[in-house]
């Protein structure tokens, strides 16, 4: 394709990205560095601040249960409520990623079963990539940037909750060193979604053709946008290998939680995605 077409594709995907994803990297980095006129985020660093900030996370849907009124019981409930709210937000984010996928030229013309497969296998990878701009080495923004939750607090939760986020921090700190901006991210997300090697795809060729065009667009974009960053295109693509391992580990952890946490019930949309995934 001509470079003008590739640039138009990049512009189109960037516009979709801005339309469907409420918290951009530019905004997240402004919040994290204090360079915004908005209020600084509320910091959650322990159980007390989690309870104080709960109303901002909108995680009070689960009623307090009568049989657990001890301090330990209340803390377990606060943790569970927090992870339920994370699930609700994840389900919303899946919906946003779906709209973004549908905006990729040619996606909605693919076999409908293949559209389902691409989303099923791609969406958690996309969500992990989208988490990276919200994170720094010390913590992560949540609730659309209203809250900063510290990495140490997440590590201090009981098992297996404490194991959920640490691998994402390790990945994100390295991924953020590539310094992609929102327009680069939009193309990279489309590349991830259009992976022709997902299990069970019926018609791989049109998916690979679409991905090839987006890859050309990403390569051109990175060369233009980051002229001094050597081999950036290759470095970005290498992250896709790390992502698959992260998703496999994440799904195993969720399965473990389903078995060990009596109060744990997985959001139906997330259940659909994770059932028979890897």
């Amino acid at each position: 394709p001509e470079s003008a077409d590739l640039r138009a594709l990049a512009r189109h995907l960037y516009e979709s990205y801005l339309k469907y994803f409420p918290l951009t990297k530019a905004k997240a980095r402004a919040i994290l560095s204090g360079k915004t006129s908005d209020n600084a985020p509320f910091v959650i660093h322990d159980m007390k601040s989690l309870m104080e900030g709960e109303h901002m996370i909108n995680c009070r849907q689960m009623p307090m249960q009568e049989h657990r009124r001890s301090d330990v019981g209340i803390m377990r409930e606060v943790e569970l409520r927090f992870f339920h709210s994370c699930q609700s937000r994840s389900a919303e984010a899946v919906s946003e990623v779906t709209e973004f996928a549908k905006s990729i030229p040619g996606f909605v013309n693919l076999d409908l079963n293949d559209q389902v497969t691409l989303l099923k296998y791609g969406v958690i990878e996309v969500l992990i990539i989208m988490m990276a701009p919200l994170m720094n080495k010390d913590g992560t923004l949540i609730s659309y940037g209203q809250i900063f939750m510290t990495r140490e607090f997440l590590k201090s939760l009981r098992k297996p909750f404490c194991e959920m986020m640490e691998p994402k921090f390790e990945f994100s700190v390295k991924f953020n060193m590539l310094e992609l901006d929102d327009s680069d991210m939009a193309l990279f997300l489309a590349v991830i979604i259009l992976s022709g090697d997902r299990p069970g795809l019926l018609n791989v060729k049109p998916i690979e053709d679409l991905q090839e065009t987006v890859l050309h667009s990403l390569e051109l974009q990175l060369k233009t946008n980051h002229p001094d960053s050597l081999q950036l295109f290759a470095k970005v693509l290498q992250k896709m290998t790390d992502l698959r391992q992260l998703v496999t580990d994440h799904v195993q952890l969720i399965q473990l939680m389903k078995e060990t946490e009596l109060d744990w019930c997985l959001h139906p949309l997330l259940q659909e995605i994770m059932r028979d995934l890897y």
Binding site: Y20, S88, A91, E92, V94, S95, E96, T98, E99, K102, V108, L112, N113, Q115, V116, T117, L119, K120, G200, H267, P268, L269, E272, I273, R275
Partner: peptide, 21 residues
């Protein structure tokens, strides 16, 4: 496959903005 993924299928078929879940 789409039978086992009813919500994903609905999200894909929905023609407007993100679905309220």
């Amino acid at each position: 496959l789409k039978e086992k993924h009813k919500i994903l299928h609905r999200l894909l078929q929905n023609s407007s903005s993100p679905v309220d879940l």
